[in-house]
């Protein structure tokens, strides 16, 4: 019974904290060009929000919200966004990752094109980093058996 009472504080606080962490991670990602931040940092904070759920409650809580297969697909989606943005530049006869030349195709000027290209790249990085960090945590905690393993920790 004391175990339940001990956990009430942790569970309540983390339940309140997780949405703020996720919004903060998006903030860090979006302001990466002007203050410390960017894709990797935002992805880590987003992953940390899920890991907080897993540490405070049960590993099942992560699994209820985010299945492992979807996690793997998010990882691939991030890399796809990154390389896709890089290869988009081929269409406007620029080099790889030269999204400044996209201003030839789209109705924006070169500086804005570079700006949005950078934001897209960082988005790809964030998604991949979040997915990989979460999957590292789940794999290590379940000793490789995946999230469907019999749960023996509380």
């Amino acid at each position: 019974m004391t175990k339940d009472l001990d956990n009430v504080v942790i569970k309540t606080v983390s339940r309140i904290l997780v949405p703020f962490m996720q919004v903060f991670s998006l903030y860090v990602f979006a302001h990466g060009h002007g203050s410390p931040g960017g894709g990797f940092q935002g992805g880590c904070i987003m992953a940390a929000s899920f890991i907080l759920l897993g540490v405070a409650f049960n590993l099942r809580e992560i699994g209820k919200r985010f299945r492992e297969r979807n996690n793997a697909l998010m990882c691939v989606l991030g890399v796809f966004i990154y390389t896709g943005t890089g290869c988009l530049a081929f269409l406007s006869s620029g080099n790889f990752l030269d999204y400044g030349t996209l201003s030839d195709l789209l109705p924006i000027d070169s500086i804005k094109a570079r700006y949005y290209g950078m934001a897209l790249i960082e988005l790809g990085v964030q998604i991949t980093v979040m997915a990989v960090m979460l999957s590292i945590f789940v794999d290590l905690v379940t000793a490789g058996r995946g999230e469907d393993a019999p749960e023996d920790t509380e």
Binding site: R69, L73, C75, V76, V79, F80, T83, C87, N95, F96
Partner: peptide
């Protein structure tokens, strides 16, 4: 397209590595 070969030689296996992983799940 031949001018991009130098970078495609790195980008294509990188992308296919992740795509193989994704499609291999199904």
């Amino acid at each position: 397209m031949t001018v991009h070969f130098s970078v495609l030689i790195v980008v294509v296996p990188l992308l296919s590595s992740f795509l193989v992983f994704a499609f291999g799940l199904f």
